[in-house]
Design a protein around this nucleic acid. Structure first.
Lengths: 189, 189
DNA sequence: CGTCCGCTGGACCGATCGTTCCAGTCGTCG
DNA sequence: CGACGACTGGAACGATCGGTCCAGCGGACG
């Protein structure tokens, strides 16, 4: 793997755990074993450009995971497994692995419009995947768009609570709640 | 107001918008007009101790707001107004005012156990308020606890999406969804 | 084989970080 | 009124930040 890709991967991993401000170029150099010069050669825009690339990369990985999880033919099972897969990731990482971009998104909201927009794009991609899956199940138009945003909101919020409380309960309860909601939405009166 | 309180208030405001790492002691000194020496006199533990105090303070303000919003006799109206009040805050602050502790909570999850625990305590307080309100409406025990966590999750997640997308739609959709959920929960088949 | 260029390694920059220290000020109380 | 202790203002600390610069390595290609 070339030094460019190593830098992206290391940065994505560090942003995931620590966020933007806490992740220094020195730390990226150490962990990625990419020389400082190479990083600024590949990313002339410095930390901001590297972080943007790392977020897009991490977002794409997640997108693939979501796509896989949502492949199950029963929506309820799909969403449930999808949400609970994060609970597993939480447990296995000692509650360090929440959403790979949420921390950065919040930091960037006040600090970097460019990075904020990258995060917005990634969120939009996930949302589109969810909405498409809901529509495949007969939940149409605005209703699907609203429900997709609610699912993503509940997931993101639950991950904050899980990391803060060091429990997986919020994710489990959200999974349960969304299953019930989808049952009601798919078979309305 | 004494310098101690000014430091707490300024820090709370800065943490709200910028998070922990982005908020420097210099900035706190400038905005609060508390001298450097005073800050370290009142908070010998330095930035961490000051941040903890600021988070507790911000948490208490929010607790009061939640208590007020939840006073409405109809739970659905109460929760709806409660959630939509954040949408208002978002709009009026140009999407800078989300949850006053979420950003810090995520940053602290990997950086500072002490601050993480303060955040956990604040979240628990809000959650307890929600659960108590739900129980007042006949939603009992575990069901109330689960639903409380789901409401808080959806709210926190929606605020991330709102700040990142610079829209209030996620909060509005979550408000709508929770209203429907509460209707179903309060009057089960 | 010689040239060239993408890439590397590391020294170095000024700025800013959180923290320490202390002389000085001010109100209070003996 | 003198002394004391709570608090202030600011200088200064070493560490680390993101970023720049450049000599030189090494593989590809004429």
């Amino acid at each position: 793997m070339d030094s460019r890709q190593r830098a992206i991967d290391a940065t994505a991993a560090l942003l995931w755990r620590q966020g933007l401000r806490a992740t220094g170029i020195n730390q990226i150099v150490e962990e990625s074993k990419s020389p400082r010069g190479s990083i600024y050669f590949h990313f002339p825009g410095g930390k901001e450009e590297l972080a943007a690339a790392a977020l897009r990369s991490a977002g794409a990985v997640m997108t693939a995971n979501i796509r896989g999880a949502l492949a199950h033919r029963d929506v309820r099972t799909a969403v449930k497994r999808f949400v609970l897969s994060y609970a597993k990731e939480m447990r296995e990482s000692d509650f360090q692995h929440g959403c790979p971009i949420a921390t950065v998104a919040l930091e960037a909201a006040s600090a970097s419009p460019a990075i904020r927009e990258v995060c917005a794009g990634v969120f939009a991609e996930w949302d589109a995947l969810l909405v498409a899956r809901l529509e495949r199940d007969g939940i149409r138009g605005k209703k699907a768009r609203k429900l997709g945003a609610v699912i993503l909101s509940a997931l993101e919020g639950a991950m904050i609570l899980c990391r803060t409380h060091r429990t997986t309960e919020p994710l489990e309860w959200v999974a349960e709640h969304l299953t019930a909601t989808l049952t009601a939405a798919a078979a309305p009166r």
